[in-house]
Design a protein around this nucleic acid. Sequence first.
DNA 1: TCTTTAACTGTAAACGTTTACCGTGCCGAA
DNA 2: TTCGGCACGGTAAACGTTTACAGTTAAAGA
Lengths: 331, 331
Amino acid sequence: MTTIRSVAEEAGVSIASVSRVINGLAARGDTEERVWKAIKALDYQPNSAARALKVRRSEQICLSFDDLANPAYTMMTRGVGQALSASEYRLVLASAFSSVEEIIKHLKTMGRGFADGLIISPIYGDVRITKLLSNLQIPVVVIGTLPEGINADNVWVDSSAGVEAAIVHLKHVGRKKIAFLNGPLSTNPGRRRLAAFHNALASNNLQSLSENVFQADAFSPDSAYQTISSSKNLSTFDSIICANDQLAAGLMKYCSQNQIEIPSDLAVIGIDNTDLSSLLRPTLTTIDLHAEERGALAAQLMLQRLADPTRPIQKIVVEPTLVIRESTEEK
Amino acid sequence: MTTIRSVAEEAGVSIASVSRVINGLAARGDTEERVWKAIKALDYQPNSAARALKVRRSEQICLSFDDLANPAYTMMTRGVGQALSASEYRLVLASAFSSVEEIIKHLKTMGRGFADGLIISPIYGDVRITKLLSNLQIPVVVIGTLPEGINADNVWVDSSAGVEAAIVHLKHVGRKKIAFLNGPLSTNPGRRRLAAFHNALASNNLQSLSENVFQADAFSPDSAYQTISSSKNLSTFDSIICANDQLAAGLMKYCSQNQIEIPSDLAVIGIDNTDLSSLLRPTLTTIDLHAEERGALAAQLMLQRLADPTRPIQKIVVEPTLVIRESTEEK
DNA sequence: TCTTTAACTGTAAACGTTTACCGTGCCGAA
DNA sequence: TTCGGCACGGTAAACGTTTACAGTTAAAGA
């Protein structure tokens, strides 16, 4: 194994000098030259564990979320990655595929100097997660609703404003019988978006029909498809808002198999403005929650926090945008 | 900061005993008890950098690929994650969004004890990548075509057999004028799949029409859409094979906007069998390359290699499967 | 030429673990 | 009662860096 010691010998200097050259501190021209030459010759790579131990920083920022399969998180990851790429920090992803246990497992290793900062988008309200988060010794940036009792930098999107805009739009194109296709109520987005739906109906003086909420058990197309298949009252409605684009896609699959025309029989709105929304047929009206932008903002908050741990806690609010496509065209 | 030293003091034992208890080595009942009590009381978390430095293992396996936005990699990641979840290794993702520079940057940190093993699915043939890979001191498992000169465990899928099956199928449903919509030729899949297309045409005695290859500059829907929009001879063909589902989706978007009926005017086949393929309308016939399974196999190879570094190099070959859906129904 | 100062460089002590080695105390056998 | 053996526990030396501090050299001013 080639260590800093072997480089020092090869170059005929002390290990301190090697370290200084590597880290760009002052050195005489010829010292510097000999050190670089030795490094090249030996193909030396500094050991990051040793460095991390000494400087008490891993130079890693961890991004943690619950469902890699959800394209919204892919977009978010891209935002974080780009914001971090110019920094000295490396991005590592710790994604669970929707298992609270896995998240907890990851969070536990977090406190061990594995990462210098954690950007997390927790969709479950599990108290164990909250507890672990609040015990963490490293800065945390939360994307999404801040769990009760956590005091951390936060990027938040007002999804209820998005749902409100969607309902205003539906009303405007002449729809009155609006349903909601939700993801699991065990998640924050599930609870918040459902509440937003009810509020928006009320504030727009729209009648809340009975059984107007379809409840899927995951934010996935399959789950939407099954939920809708096993319900009998879809035809009661002239429009439906889905808690994300994936659910909308599953619903649309069902519709196309059952001769329900979109938008004439049923107008459909999704959430997230993922790639899917312009690939589906008809194209999908959707509420853009700006996942990529939120990721980038979170990364910036993290970098600032890392640079100045004493700065006051920040909260950034992002406004959603309604993107209108074919699935809500007027009849 | 609470270290093993503070735990030792709190428990009234030596740091060696604390370490032994944590690592499950022999200790008297009361020692063990006092140590765990102290750990609980101080909320102690062992520092992983220190441990990594000492035991020369990071207990991390890194999965690296080129394009998180490509759902095929999401599936692959799920496979790796599941295969690893029972092991002592943590999975970290280092994904670049299709930039060779970023991959190189990541690869360089790899040799520093950042990870104990690297599972990589390199789509670019860049020599710098090959060189870095061959210099790596840790085990490497390659998913995909093994770069020239690299000797590593390998999971390989015979995509040309898939393309062959696709062409046989098209012929069977009465198509003779077959085109190919390819991704960038700078990538391994791009080159291999194109070659497979030409071979399969020949071996099936099908005429190779002029300009029968449409060349997109990324494996994305947008890129497909643009490529097709700016070409004038799509109507020459009665069927088209796309180098992945994303490209097929972009093509189908173009078709639906330009009154080209699928499958009657044009039969379409994708590659990967991603979620998209059953959500599109019509649903998409596609070549399943079993990304999730390949991920799991690669992880198993890695675990075996890590357990026994001297075992012979393995190569696992996965056979593709043609999944037939609406986009290639007979006219 | 001699002193003062600045610019580098080397020595050695950390960082928080693991683990080889040795010492202690206990038990059972002679 | 003495001794051998065994099971634990403690001491201290690593692991590969960074960095405070002191020492050395060279340059500049007198």
